[in-house]
């Protein structure tokens, strides 16, 4: 299936609702960590320019904090677009971003279970 179609289907988002105001990127707490910003995710998916997004580290910088979803005046839900692109990337074979063998090095004594389960849910299939 066409990548754009796949992402639209996974996210359930109508990217055409975007009016290019940039409020999502104005509110994003991870903005400076991202190569592509929330409004660019929406725009690039709409224009079918998906490859750069699939290969970008920005996919793993979104905090899923829903600030962009809450504040978008058009109800676009950019976080769902980011998640859909991330899934489109990690669902490909061998593309897990987080692998079990990496975990021991990343955790400490206090790491809550919540962090591990959510990281696995977000970063690997």
């Amino acid at each position: 299936m066409d990548k754009k179609e796949e992402i639209l289907r996974i996210s359930g988002v109508n990217v055409r609702k975007c009016m290019r105001c940039g409020k999502c990127s104005g509110t994003c707490p991870s903005y400076d960590e991202m190569e592509f910003h929330p409004h660019q995710f929406v725009y690039m998916v709409e224009s079918g320019n998906i490859e750069p997004l699939l290969n970008s580290d920005s996919l793993y910088k979104c905090l899923s904090c829903f600030a962009c979803v809450e504040r978008c005046p058009r109800g676009v839900e950019p976080a769902k677009v980011v998640e859909a692109v991330r899934l489109a990337a990690i669902r490909q074979k061998g593309n897990n971003h987080l692998k079990a063998e990496m975990v021991p090095e990343l955790i400490d004594d206090e790491t809550p279970q919540q962090l591990l389960v959510s990281a696995f849910r977000k970063f690997s299939k």
Binding site: G22, K23, C24, S25, G26, H37, A67, R71
Partner: peptide, 19 residues
């Protein structure tokens, strides 16, 4: 661009975060 958040600062000023 659009303002995403206005945060009052302890000194009474306002931090305007925007794109």
């Amino acid at each position: 661009g659009m303002v995403g958040k206005v945060s009052p600062r302890p000194d009474g000023n306002l931090d305007v975060q925007a794109s």
